[in-house]
Computed example of a mutant assay.
Amino acid sequence: MPASETRARDVVVTGVSLASLKKAVDDCLQSHCPATDDIVRSQEYANGQFALGDYAGSRETLRKARHRNARYASSIPVEVAGLHRATGRITGLVGLPDSEQLLMIDAVDALKAGLNKDDVRVLLARLEVGDAYARDRRLDEAIERYDTVRSQARRLSLRPVEGMAMLRKAVLLSAVASTQSIYNGRARAAVKEIQQTSDADMAPFRNACQLIQVQLTRKASERDAAFDAAIARMEPLASTRPTLLYSPPVELAPSIHDLTANSDTPWADISFLVTPDGHVGDVQLVAKSGHLERQWLRPVIQATSQRRYMPMALSGSTGLRQTVRYSFVGDLVARSGSHLLYRSPTPRVVSIDMTPDSNYLPLKDG
């Protein structure tokens, strides 16, 4: 599971107009509303801006809310941490991964300002710092964070959190090993450590490792049948919601355009049906930015069609409709010998689940 999808509800698309969401923020500020209300309304407005593709506007809304409310961390740590985290995610999506990482660290500090340092929410926020490093391809820093959280979780007997940290490490090393074979040994060792567990809390992580092993050992032509066999061996988990098991990496060719620092982040929303047996069908492009390069759409649609989900008990149903936003993030970098910034021509692909909760209702036959 890609780190970028471990928290799927960054964005909620609602039927409320963007103008109404902005008015709610303005009214709140005019009435000197409590910080909790300011944070909620600002995040709702920023979510709406993001859903419509206004990444810069979304970031500015969150930055202003953060400036107003960061000082309340000791009294409302969870809310302030959520604001830091949301600001960090959108900051990463506009091509500033270093700033994203710092904001994720701010989220940890906000939680520690009002919660015990051993609170499970602090540990989960530390995992997200590791995820931010992983998205920026900073392997050593990400693994260091995951290992630290694992040790803390073990000391506190938080077995599921320990499993999350172990799986993140295994997934990251396996992803790197797919293009750099020198990491195969470390990836297999991380997988083996999870597979050697036997307690029920680790069952979801053992299941995930069966698919990682397929990726490490099977040729692409044999992979689909190998996935079916691995899923059949998995320990059963009761679920009627799509649980992502495998999402192939998206490989993109460099941009044919010179992307300036002022260029917006291109994006595409892909809708698809997850069938009861965990396969994907009926993949459709439902929305996109106006400046998305056509050469990038085909690999995204192909990767989406190759996703695999945990089988679900959906009697009389064709499956569940999902929507994923793919953002094509060109990080801001300096040209050699110049202080001018430009965007990397080969973007990172970041995916976020945009499925409204109503879409979890099974789509009936006919």
Rank of each mutant, 00 (worst) to 15 (best):
H84A: 06
E79S: 10
G130N: 08
R137P: 08
D106I: 04
D98Q: 12
P160R: 13
E100D: 02
L123N: 06
D106H: 15
A142S: 04
Y133F: 13
R138A: 12
E79C: 10
Y72H: 14
G163S: 05
D147W: 10
G95T: 09
Y133M: 04
L93A: 13
L93G: 08
L111A: 02
K112I: 06
R89F: 00
S75D: 12
R71Y: 07
V108A: 06
M164P: 12
A70S: 10
K112L: 01
H84Q: 13
V161D: 02
A142F: 03
D119L: 01
T91H: 05
E128H: 08
R121A: 04
K112Y: 14
V94D: 11
A153S: 05
H84M: 11
V80W: 00
R155M: 10
R154F: 04
R126A: 04
S74K: 11
Y133T: 03
L96H: 15
M104H: 15
L115Q: 10
P97T: 02
D119H: 05
V94S: 11
V161N: 04
V120C: 10
I76M: 09
R71Q: 10
D136M: 04
A70Y: 08
E141Q: 14
G114A: 15
A73T: 06
R126D: 05
V120L: 12
L124K: 14
L127H: 05
R71I: 04
G114T: 05
L103T: 01
R137G: 11
D119Y: 03
V122H: 03
